[in-house]
C-alpha cells in the first residue's frame, strides 16, 4: 500500500466555533495508467464541511467530481493528503477499516438506487447493520420506523422490483440513515427520477438536513444544487469556486 508522505496532524479546531466534521487537506489523486500516461484527478484539494451543513458538489465530467465522491465515500484512498472524518484520518486506513468507516460513518444514496434485488424493503434497510454485526432482531423496530419515515410503512415486505423508482430511492434514503452516519453522500439522487418524484426525494433530503444531518450531494443540476447551503464547483481537479446560498444554522442539536 502506498503511504502518504507524512502523517497529517490532528485537525485544528476551526476559529468560528462550529464543528468541521469533515476536513480534507491537500488531497492528491493520480492514476498511473502507464509510464507516460499519468492522470491527475485531484491536485491538492482542501475542503472542510461543518456538522449539519448541506453541500452540493458540481462540475463538468473530468473535473475530478467522481474521484472526490469516491474519496469522500471512503471507497478510494487519496494518493496523498489527509481526510479527517469524524476525528479519524481515513486516508491511510487499510481496506477492512475503510469498509468499517463506510459502514459506520457514511450513508450512501445512489443515482440508480442500488437496492439488493433478492431482499425485501425492510431487509434492504438492514443491510448496513448486518455488516456492523448488529442484532437484526433487536434493530427491527428502528428499521420499521425508518420505513415509515420514508412513507413505505405498508410496503415493508415488497421487493425492489415491485416498487417505483421514487419508492426505491426512498428505501435507499432509509437505508442510508439506519447506521446513523456522520454524513449522507448522495450521488445524483434524482438523476433517474421524473421531476415530481425527484422533488419529493429532495424534500426528504432537505428535511433530513433540517434535523441536523450533514449532506453532501453530487449533481449537475443547478436546481438541485440550489437547495444546498454551499455549492462547490470543481474544475480540473481543483475547487474552482464556492457559492454560499445561505448560512448553516448553528448548533442544530
Amino acid at each position: 500500500m502506498k503511504m502518504p508522505e507524512k502523517q497529517a496532524p490532528a485537525p485544528p479546531k476551526p476559529a468560528n466555533g462550529s464543528e468541521a466534521i469533515i476536513r480534507i487537506e491537500g488531497i492528491d489523486k493520480t492514476y498511473v495508467l502507464s509510464a507516460e500516461n499519468i492522470v491527475h484527478a485531484l491536485r491538492g484539494v482542501h475542503l472542510s464541511i461543518d456538522q449539519g451543513s448541506y453541500v452540493a458538489i458540481m462540475g463538468p465530467s473530468g473535473s475530478g467530481k467522481s474521484t472526490m465522491l469516491n474519496i469522500l465515500g471512503c471507497l478510494d484512498r487519496p494518493t496523498s493528503g489527509s481526510y479527517w472524518l469524524g476525528g479519524e484520518n481515513v486516508a491511510t486506513m487499510p481496506d477492512d477499516e475503510l469498509s468499517e468507516a463506510r459502514g459506520k460513518k457514511i450513508g450512501f444514496i445512489f443515482q440508480s438506487y442500488n437496492l439488493i434485488a433478492q431482499l425485501t424493503v425492510i431487509e434492504n434497510i438492514q443491510v448496513p447493520l448486518f455488516y456492523q454485526g448488529v442484532d437484526l432482531a433487536a434493530s427491527q423496530g428502528r428499521c420499521v420506523e425508518l420505513a415509515k419515515l420514508v412513507g413505505l410503512g405498508d410496503r415493508m415486505d415488497h421487493r425492489p422490483a415491485q416498487l417505483s423508482g421514487g419508492q426505491q430511492q426512498r428505501v435507499a434514503i432509509a437505508r442510508s440513515l439506519v447506521n446513523d452516519p456522520i454524513m449522507i453522500l448522495a450521488d445524483e439522487p434524482t438523476g433517474n427520477l421524473d421531476s415530481r418524484t425527484g422533488t419529493e426525494v429532495l424534500e426528504m433530503i432537505g428535511q433530513l438536513n433540517a434535523h441536523g444531518k450533514t449532506i453532501v450531494l453530487v449533481t449537475h443540476d443547478d436546481k438541485v444544487a440550489a437547495r444546498a447551503h454551499r455549492v462547490i464547483h470543481m474544475k480540473d481537479g481543483l475547487i474552482d469556486r464556492e457559492v454560499i446560498n445561505r448560512p448553516v444554522p448553528h448548533a442544530p442539536k
Binding site: 463506510r102 459502514g103 450512501f108 442500488n114 434485488a117 443491510v127 455488516y131 437505508r175 447506521n179
Partner: peptide
C-alpha cells in the same frame, strides 16, 4: 458484481 459493489459500499469487508 453490482450487488457486491453495493454491499462493499454499505460496509461489507472483503471477508464478508
Amino acid at each position: 458484481t453490482r450487488e457486491i459493489g453495493v454491499r462493499r459500499a454499505l460496509g461489507a469487508k472483503k471477508r464478508d
